[in-house]
């Protein structure tokens, strides 16, 4: 398994780790922009649908063409208001839950992945080779099929139907571990660590003082991925949670979507759509914020050397 790591650690390890800044002289290409634009449209089209349809009433949804606005009332703001107040404002409760799961789950996942990735990249220890083999091997077993065993175990631990049942499994991101591993191998020069050791700095002190800042761009990437994964986590809460008060947004939206499909159920597709839109927005904002940090992180890396 270590062969892969070697490959990923790539040829430039011996190079001076200077990074290329943006070259201002590069000519912009319209053709390339247009070609990439096709992928952009492909990515955006369904989201445009979401945006357009969030302006329609429940009835308007069924009587108008999906990719254009409805002749009827412009219901965008009333939809938002309804989404936030429906069922005594349960949506906000779900939003709060989701934030809780993301902050603790994704934050913790990133922290664990950074620690472990750094440990794997910069230390030689007993059982190291087995770690990656075990991680990738375990990831290969279909998670949905493990749901029942996991549920039964958590039930025995008394964790089901509590936030912990959602948070604890989110703490593991094998992919994040891998990213941090390769990133730490490249971004943290071994000499710095040796120098710190010579100065008598403890390993954890070195980690927090010197290594963490160097890892910043990688941390942001892992944080972003695990945030999205936790934010959109659906299957696990579905199995673990019974009390709608602990639902994350995805489960709540699905419950709204499903509630039409029963005797006497009220179809609220307009709220499902508006709710979906509202669900995406915080992620988008987080991404934009993190991206800025991410770029400056990269740039900082290049300045430093």
């Amino acid at each position: 398994m270590t062969t892969m790591v070697t490959a990923a650690q790539a040829p430039e390890t011996d190079e001076a780790p200077t990074r290329r800044g943006k070259n201002p002289r590069t000519k912009k290409s319209i053709v390339l922009t247009l070609l990439t634009g096709i992928v952009l449209i492909y990515s955006l089209l369904p989201l445009v649908w979401l945006l357009i349809n969030s302006t329609k009433t429940q009835d308007g949804l069924f009587t108008s063409f999906g990719l254009w606005f409805d002749d009827g009332p412009f219901a965008f703001f009333s939809n938002i208001a309804d989404t936030l107040t429906y069922n005594d404002g349960i949506f906000l409760r779900w939003l709060g839950n989701t934030l809780l799961y993301v902050v603790i789950g994704a934050g913790g996942a990133t922290f664990l992945a950074v620690l472990a990735g750094y440990g794997l990249a910069k230390f030689d220890f007993v059982g190291k080779k087995a770690v990656f083999a075990i991680v990738i091997g375990a990831v290969a077993v279909p998670g949905t099929a493990l749901a029942v065993p996991t549920f039964l175990m958590f039930a025995k631990l008394g964790l089901t139907n509590t936030p912990w049942a959602v948070i604890i499994p989110s703490l593991i991101t094998p992919f994040g571990l891998y990213l941090m591993w390769t990133f730490a191998a490249e971004a943290v020069p071994t000499e710095i660590l040796e120098a710190a050791r010579v100065d008598g700095s403890g390993e954890f002190r070195t980690f927090f003082r010197i290594v963490l800042p160097l890892l910043a761009p990688g941390i942001v990437t892992v944080l972003l991925f695990s945030m999205v994964a936790t934010w959109n986590n659906y299957f696990l809460p579905l199995i673990m949670l019974r009390d709608p008060d602990w639902y994350p947004l995805t489960l709540g939206l699905n419950a709204w979507n499903a509630q039409a499909a029963t005797a006497g159920g009220e179809a609220i597709f307009n709220l499902v759509i508006t709710g979906s839109l509202l669900t995406i927005i915080p992620l988008l904002a987080a991404f934009l914020l993190l991206q800025r940090y991410w770029q400056s992180g990269l740039a900082a890396g290049s300045v430093k050397e």
Binding site: Q58, D59, F62, A260, A263, G264, G265, E266, A267
Partner: peptide, 15 residues
């Protein structure tokens, strides 16, 4: 279908 359907008509296919 079953006689429980009217409530669904009213709320979900209002037009």
């Amino acid at each position: 279908t079953g006689a429980w359907m009217p409530a669904n008509f009213v709320t979900s296919a209002a037009s």
